[in-house]
């Protein structure tokens, strides 16, 4: 299922914008109405959410299940960190540079990856993820070694504005970047929906009709690299520290699994699932110290059985069900069991 994003010519179309305004509204409410814990905690989840958007794009739109998007993520993050530490602290500059670094990295890797399919891509990208951490660890002048970098200067939104350090502005900023980048991804994917569905579904026929399949996939991979790079910049802006472990297999696995839970064809679903996953690991498990992996494992198992096709498919089924119930307009009350759960 793909969200549509046309311009709001009519009132009816405005409804399509609501999903995009929801996270912004939620972030504003959170920033306004809670203590310092929630804004900082949620803001720190958003880089992974945006990385999951990038992974879902490659996995869903291009059909290439990947663990390798941590490479452009790392490129974006270290570019941002080094720019900030060199005294260039403008956020728009960071985002642009990180997106370019991400696209460049993904472009290079894409030349190798997009020629392959299925499990081979998964394993090649596993090597990419592992080699990304190793390279970051070894390249100490950039990464600061295994302990990484800390105390990276905060970004400025515009010249002359105060640095983005307080938790609430950081949350609003990170939400805005995440939503904008996801919306841009969706717009592009929607515009090329026909081509991508066709290429993914039947490569041979598409090639025989003159479609350079590999080039299309490379473009998607590279574009998703720009999103991953942006996510890397966001990682620095929300954390202001980074270690090589943050751009390794664990992060890649969480992002890919979030994309699966969200429904691989839905970047926004992946973002929501990433927040859910980190919510379980960092928030729900905080009161049962030492058992975060157990809860995370339970979440994954539950997601497989209870949400076939991911969150997005569940939402679609829910909508279909509501429509069906409305259409039949049954007068009898709902069964007791469903009342209890609703």
């Amino acid at each position: 299922m793909t969200a549509r994003l046309p311009l709001p010519h009519r009132w009816d179309d405005l409804r399509r914008w609501v999903p995009w305004l929801l996270p912004l509204g939620a972030a504003t409410t959170l920033a306004a109405a809670s203590d310092g814990y929630w804004p900082a905690t949620v803001a720190r989840m958003l880089p992974l959410a945006l990385l999951a958007v990038s992974v879902a794009t490659v996995t869903g739109a291009a059909g290439l299940p990947t663990l390798g998007q941590v490479a452009p993520y790392a490129a974006g993050a270290y570019t941002t960190a080094r720019l900030a530490m060199a005294g260039h602290t403008l956020a728009p500059v960071h985002l642009t540079a990180a997106a370019l670094a991400g696209a460049f990295t993904a472009g290079l890797l894409g030349m190798l990856l997009v020629r392959h399919r299925g499990t081979v891509v998964l394993m090649l990208s596993l090597a990419v993820a592992e080699l990304t951490t190793i390279t970051a660890t070894q390249w100490r002048t950039v990464s600061g070694g295994t302990d990484g970098l800390a105390g990276i200067p905060a970004p400025h939104l515009l010249p002359g504005t105060p640095p983005l350090t307080a938790d609430r502005p950081v949350l609003l900023y990170a939400t805005a970047v995440t939503v904008a980048a996801t919306a841009a991804t969706m717009l592009l994917l929607h515009r090329h929906h026909l081509l991508l569905t066709a290429v993914r579904g039947n490569e041979t026929r598409a090639a025989a009709s003159g479609h350079p399949v590999t080039t299309y996939l490379w473009l998607v991979h590279t574009g998703a690299g720009a999103i991953a790079g942006t996510a890397g910049a966001l990682l620095i802006h929300t954390h202001r520290w980074i270690t090589p472990a943050d751009v390794g297999f664990d992060t890649a696995a969480l992002a890919l699994l979030a994309a699966v839970i969200g429904g691989t064809h839905s970047p926004p679903g992946a973002a929501v699932a990433a927040v859910l996953v980190l919510g379980v690991r960092d928030v729900a498990a905080a009161d049962w110290p030492g058992h975060a992996p157990l809860l995370l494992g339970a979440l994954f198992v539950a997601a497989v059985y209870l949400l076939p096709g991911g969150l997005t498919a569940a939402l679609t089924r829910l909508r279909a069900e509501i429509r069906r119930v409305r259409a039949t307009r049954r007068p009898e009350p709902l069964p007791a069991a469903s009342r209890r759960t609703s």
Binding site: A245, L278, G290
Partner: peptide, 15 residues
């Protein structure tokens, strides 16, 4: 729980 490093430790410290 600090877990394996900053990725899990910092949210726990924040809490």
């Amino acid at each position: 729980d600090e877990g394996d490093g900053p990725a899990t430790a910092v949210p726990a410290a924040q809490k």
